[in-house]
Amino acid sequence: MCTRYYVELSPELRPYVEAASRTPLKAKMVSVLGKKFKAEGEIRPTDMAAVIAPGRDGKQAVFPMVWGYHITGIDHPVVNARVESAKDKTSFAVDWARHRCIVPASYYFEWEHIKRPDGTVKTGQKYAIQPRNATVTYLAGLYRIEEERGLKYPVFTVLTREPGEILSKIHNRMPVILPEDAIGDWIKPDADPGRIVSEALTDMDMVVETAR
């Protein structure tokens, strides 16, 4: 799963954050939706943050987007989609084929899941996780346009997959994380997402997250 990630205003991430913050769309979303744009810190579901996606000219651009799809019949924002089945799900199939994005982060958080003797699961340590020897974590996602009070605005969901060997010790899912050189291909509407997903990174560094 991926239900929290963290953005530091590092030299690598600052340009994305500043580009999204400067857009006229950001000002409209703040006004109409009543949300703050999260430039840094811990990003949670329903927050507005910087996301990489193709612009109208097809070139790479950065937009403010809200984390979570609103899907009929589900009473909470859908913040994750399983990469194995996204292309077959009504809620995600079109976006899998045409609307793919990248969520730039410093790292993401995961909580250790510990199975009790009775089969129930309790939550353990919180870990900060990022690709080994990296300072930026590029989360692969999908996006679509929703509407509220007359404003059309983009929302995103993060794709998840089975974890690599190290992460499997704490959780049975992890986000799809792509190398930086795959960003351009991933967001192209006519690209083959199945092929690009095969490049996803699974070798991660993780440390216990301490209170800030």
Rank of each mutant, 00 (worst) to 15 (best):
C2G: 06
Y5V: 00
L9E: 05
S10K: 09
R14C: 05
S21P: 02
T23N: 09
P24F: 13
K26H: 15
A27E: 09
S31T: 14
S31I: 08
F37E: 08
E42T: 05
A53S: 07
A53N: 01
P54L: 12
G55I: 07
R56T: 12
D57T: 04
M65Y: 00
V66A: 09
W67E: 05
Y69E: 07
H76Y: 15
N80D: 08
A86C: 06
A86E: 08
F92S: 12
V94I: 15
W96T: 04
C101E: 09
C101P: 09
I102E: 10
P104T: 01
A105S: 01
Y107H: 04
F109Q: 04
E112N: 02
I114H: 14
R116N: 13
G119W: 12
V121L: 01
K122H: 13
T123W: 15
T123V: 15
Y127I: 11
A128C: 11
I129F: 15
Q130D: 00
G141Q: 07
L142H: 10
E147M: 04
P154L: 02
V158P: 01
E162D: 14
I170C: 00
N172R: 13
R173C: 11
M174L: 00
D181T: 11
D181P: 10
G184T: 07
D185S: 03
P189I: 01
P193T: 06
V197M: 08
L201V: 13
D203H: 08
D203A: 02
D203Q: 03
M206H: 13
E209Q: 13
E209R: 14
R212L: 14
